[in-house]
Simulated scan of single mutants.
Amino acid sequence: MYTIGLTGGISSGKSTVSAMLEQLGAAIIDTDIIARKIVEPGQPAWQEIVAAFGTSCLFPDGHINRKLLGEIIFTDDHKRRVLDKITHPHIQNTARQALQAAAQQGIKTAVLDAPLLIEVGWQHMVQAVWVVYVDEETQIERLMRRDRLDRSQALARIHSQMSLREKLLFATVVIDNSGNLEATQKQVFAAWQCLAANQ
């Protein structure tokens, strides 16, 4: 089975490219979905988060208040590292199991859709790294529009991540999503065709 690591930055359009790859027949393993599942009440990661952050980060029904927790870690690097240390091993183990299951099912191509693929060093789990790229100005505009942020808020979120320019250094394939949807689709299809020809 051929495994693609798909990554990008906030508002770069990674989810759009992921959906295109799924339509072309790839199995998608989405680490954002995994991250939500591993923190459900009673799960080991949930227990560790409650132990580290207390019950004040929970809704009355026991689910984690992701918005509140996000606000806590966004302003405190130490707490963000604590949360990452809890969640990342659980996410990685679940993703690895999903990749193994896909291989056993005879799937030809799987995509590990991971925003932090490079930051957490998971590129060793895949055979190719696809980076969805947009220039920073486009990224700022899209994020401001999507999340109704002002420019300084958008920049703070973008600069809290590894820059897309840095991520390009790790890329096997670059999908430039600065243009329209059709232009992105053409690049994804061309890269997919190239992959199919070499399998």
Rank of each mutant, 00 (worst) to 15 (best):
M1W: 00
I4T: 05
I4Y: 06
G5V: 07
L6S: 03
G8F: 03
G9R: 08
I10C: 09
S11C: 15
S12D: 06
S12L: 01
K14G: 04
V17G: 06
S18I: 05
M20C: 02
L21H: 04
G25W: 11
G25K: 05
A26G: 03
I33F: 12
R36C: 08
G42Q: 06
G42M: 06
Q43W: 05
Q43H: 12
Q43R: 13
P44V: 08
Q47L: 15
I49T: 08
I49Q: 05
V50L: 04
V50G: 10
V50C: 10
A51H: 08
A52R: 12
F53E: 10
T55M: 10
T55F: 07
F59W: 14
F59V: 00
F59D: 03
G62D: 00
G62M: 06
N65I: 03
R66H: 04
L69I: 11
L69S: 08
G70E: 11
I72P: 10
F74K: 07
K79N: 03
R80G: 10
R80N: 11
V82R: 11
L83P: 10
L83E: 07
D84Q: 15
I86Q: 09
T87P: 01
H90Q: 06
I91S: 08
Q92W: 12
N93P: 02
Q97A: 15
A98V: 05
L99D: 02
A101T: 15
A102M: 07
A110K: 09
V111N: 12
D113S: 14
D113Y: 13
A114M: 14
L117H: 04
I118P: 09
V120N: 11
G121P: 05
W122D: 08
V131I: 12
D135I: 04
E136W: 07
E137Q: 14
E137N: 10
T138H: 09
M144A: 06
M144C: 02
R145H: 15
R145C: 10
R148D: 13
D150W: 01
R151G: 01
Q153I: 03
L155F: 00
A156T: 12
I158K: 07
H159S: 05
H159V: 03
H159K: 07
L164Q: 00
E166D: 14
L169W: 05
L169D: 12
A171W: 06
A171F: 04
T172V: 03
T172P: 00
V173C: 06
I175W: 08
E182V: 10
A183V: 01
A183S: 09
T184Q: 02
A191R: 02
W192T: 01
L195E: 07
A196K: 11
A196V: 13
Q199R: 08
